[in-house]
Amino acid sequence: MNQEKLNIILEKHEKWLRDKGGERADLSNIDLSGLDLSGSKLERAYLKNTNLTRANLSNVNMQSTYLIGVNFEEACLTEADLSNATLHCANLGGANLSGVNLEGAYLIRVNLSDAYLNWVNWQNIKGLTAVIVQVDTTRRNNQITYIKELDIWTTGCFQGTLDELKAAVEQTHKHNEKLRNRYYRVIDFILNEVAE
Rank of each mutant, 00 (worst) to 15 (best):
Leu32Gln: 01
Asn29Thr: 05
Thr53Gln: 15
Thr65Phe: 05
Thr50Gly: 05
Asn29Phe: 15
Gln63Asn: 10
Thr50His: 06
Leu57Ser: 01
Ser28Gln: 10
Lys15Gln: 15
Leu42Ala: 07
Ala25Met: 09
Asn29Pro: 01
Asn29Asp: 15
Asp31Leu: 06
Leu47Trp: 04
Gln63Arg: 15
Lys48Thr: 13
Ser40Asp: 07
Lys41Gln: 14
Thr50Pro: 02
Leu42Gln: 03
Asn29Ala: 06
Ala55Glu: 08
Tyr46Ile: 07
Ser40Gln: 07
Trp16Cys: 04
Ile30Lys: 14
Lys15Met: 14
Arg24Phe: 05
Tyr46Lys: 13
Asn56Leu: 10
Val60Trp: 00
Asp19His: 13
Val60Ser: 05
Ile30Leu: 15
Asp26Cys: 09
Ser33Gly: 15
Arg44Asn: 12
Asn59Glu: 14
Ser38Glu: 06
Lys20Pro: 00
Gln63Phe: 12
Leu17Met: 14
Asp36Lys: 10
Trp16Arg: 04
Leu17Asn: 03
Leu52Trp: 01
Ala55Phe: 08
Lys41Met: 09
Asp36Phe: 03
Leu42Gly: 01
Leu47Arg: 02
Leu17Val: 10
Lys48Met: 08
Asn56Phe: 10
Asn61Gln: 08
Asp19Met: 10
Glu43Val: 05
Gly39Ile: 03
Glu23Pro: 03
Lys41Ile: 00
Asn51Trp: 08
Ser40Val: 09
Asn29Glu: 15
Asp19Lys: 14
Ala45Ser: 14
Tyr46Ser: 10
Leu32Tyr: 02
Asn51Pro: 02
Ser64Ile: 08
Thr65Asp: 09
Arg54Ser: 15
Arg54Gly: 00
Lys15Arg: 15
Ser28Leu: 04
Ala45Asp: 02
Ala55Thr: 11
Arg24Pro: 00
